[in-house]
Design a protein around this nucleic acid. Structure first.
Lengths: 330, 330
DNA sequence: TCTAATTTGTGCGTATGTATG
DNA sequence: GCATACATACGCACAAATTAG
């Protein structure tokens, strides 16, 4: 079944891989079939055990075969076009992942398979997902979000296969990454709009979940302190009645909607009486209430850059810039 | 009762364990029942005595069976804590999946693992993903979207493990499903709003991608024909200049934004000069331009209902209702 | 319960040819 | 010419799992 020739340009371990691929193409090997054991091929073709093992390991990495200790190797996928597999660990499924994921896929090429997982900001889910998938992928792209001490798990992966996405922490500085610098970005963006912010008396950060990056909060506080703005962090909007001179920085859209409605009730004019800065630009924010001022990053660029980094094996830590889009609401 | 296959990747002793577990899950083995003796299984499947013993010892250690010397083995607990795995095949990642996925997870319970895959409306991706994951999951939840002859692949899965989501086709009627009836829903919703639609002269369906369910298109045409509305299906908005008396039905938000901007340019008043009906209600549509009329389904309810169906092993085809939210734009 | 055969997984040492600077 | 790194290939030893008898 498996053909090996000596003294031709093709390495023997690659000849084994090609043989298995051809047997799959011709239909003589199907999913679930057992392939000859390492020792069998070794004896039959007078090879070193290591040569056969190298071939089988590559086939295993590509997801084409699976091994069972004590039993043997089995065909697990007939899709031989997959050359590489990527483990992509997101925090949660939301609309901002759409651009990121789609541009990542587009720029990778079709022969690379990407599997998505979600940790839902749950530290033990995070551990479990990483530990369960050690050894199964060529690259591990991980969004640690605001979880702590994630390197305790990540360090179990091969160093050169890890890429960090979106948020970076002090214990992850050894890995290539593409991230947002939430603190500096917020500081820069607020400074850029300081002439517009100055007309407001009280600055509020609306933080009703624990999902927001810590950097945004520290950036907010720092900006307010250095510029002597009255400020507060709101954990709920329930009893909040917006007042003239309020400026709200709102990371999530449910609270954005609440504030807009409350402002309407109180007959406060957006961009004059009260201000709003929203996080993450979506299509409709351009036209809602004459335009909502947003701070957002280019998730398309992030996905594209990530694909490039992996394809070129770049080892760099790259900041994905945030930009401020000033509209009517400020 | 107990099934053993040779030459597959699963060790025989584990196949025995799996068989006993499945018999308990399906209710064919109850607490107190006697299971076949070691010698019986050994003879029946041509196994070594030790193979059967290894399986029984593990079951005994886990407290699932008890041995009585001279009599046999008996089920002592039906509490087999096996983490169940669900294969969830979506069409694409978009924001509407967020509610669906989150409510599905919430209502499943924490010990069930859900893996997400995307076919991106690509027929061959669809086939590959299903074929590669045969046998790996306890349940298969599949969104066939508008792909054709999907049962060619789905029929290779165990019938009782398949659930169809969102769109259902004629060849999938044998499976439990929770779906939207796009055609009837659109007909009902348009009829419900007929008194508001009558003020428009030309009805347009904006269909710039091939991702929309066919049912919406046929529903649109049928409504227009029975009510004698001038109508057309638009494949692009590039050269379109909206005119007084136009009503647009718009499934995707990029086109929604385009039409709103063009209407503003032409100084046409929404809900008076031109009308808009948008698909899928999102937070901001409530307040954009005084409110956008939407047709949408409750994805939260869909996810919850799906979880219930799976947990209770319901075999039903359930329509997830669409509702019309009339706002200023109509 | 014990022994034996087979298989994968891992680690270490060695050797050769090739590409790089 | 020399040093170095890397891919390829071979050999040996031992651990752990599977299965048979």
């Amino acid at each position: 079944m498996i053909k090996i020739k000596s003294n031709i340009g093709i390495p023997k371990y690659k000849q084994i891989i090609n043989s298995v691929e051809e047997l799959i193409i011709s239909g003589r090997l199907k999913k679930g079939d057992q392939i000859p054991s390492i020792n069998h091929i070794k004896k039959q073709h007078n090879l070193s055990r290591d040569t056969v093992l190298t071939a089988f390991n590559e086939l295993k990495n590509r997801g084409i075969i699976q091994s069972v200790v004590g039993k043997g190797y089995y065909i697990s996928s007939e899709n031989i076009s997959v050359t590489q597999k990527i483990f992509l660990l997101f925090d949660e499924l939301n609309s901002f992942k759409e651009d990121l994921y789609n541009s990542f896929l587009e720029n990778l090429g079709s022969d690379i398979q990407v599997d998505i997982y979600f940790h839902h900001f749950n530290r033990s889910s995070f551990s479990k997902l990483i530990l369960e998938n050690i050894g199964d992928y060529n690259y591990y792209v991980i969004m640690p979000a605001n979880l702590e001490q994630t390197n305790n798990d990540i360090k179990n992966l091969p160093n050169e296969k890890v890429y960090i996405l979106d948020q970076i922490h002090d214990d992850l500085l050894e890995y290539p990454a593409i991230y947002q610098n939430f603190k500096n970005a917020l500081l820069n963006n607020l400074n850029e709009a300081k002439h517009l912010i100055e007309k407001y008396k009280n600055l509020f950060f609306v933080n009703t979940s624990n999902k927001q990056p810590q950097g945004i909060l520290t950036g907010f506080s720092e900006f307010c302190k250095t510029n002597n703005f009255e400020h507060a962090i709101l954990n709920t909007l329930k009893d909040r009645i917006p007042d003239t001179g309020d400026l709200y920085i709102i990371p999530d859209d449910k609270n954005l909607l609440r504030i807009i409605k409350k402002a309407r009730e109180s007959q406060l004019c957006l961009g004059k009486d009260i201000g709003i800065i929203s996080y993450n630009d979506t299509l409709l924010k351009e036209i809602v209430e004459g335009g909502i001022t947003t701070i957002s990053t280019d998730f398309n660029a992030m996905g594209k850059r990530l694909a490039e980094m992996i394809l070129n094996k770049e080892n760099a830590q790259i900041e994905n810039p945030n930009s401020l889009i000033i509209r009517n609401s400020l």
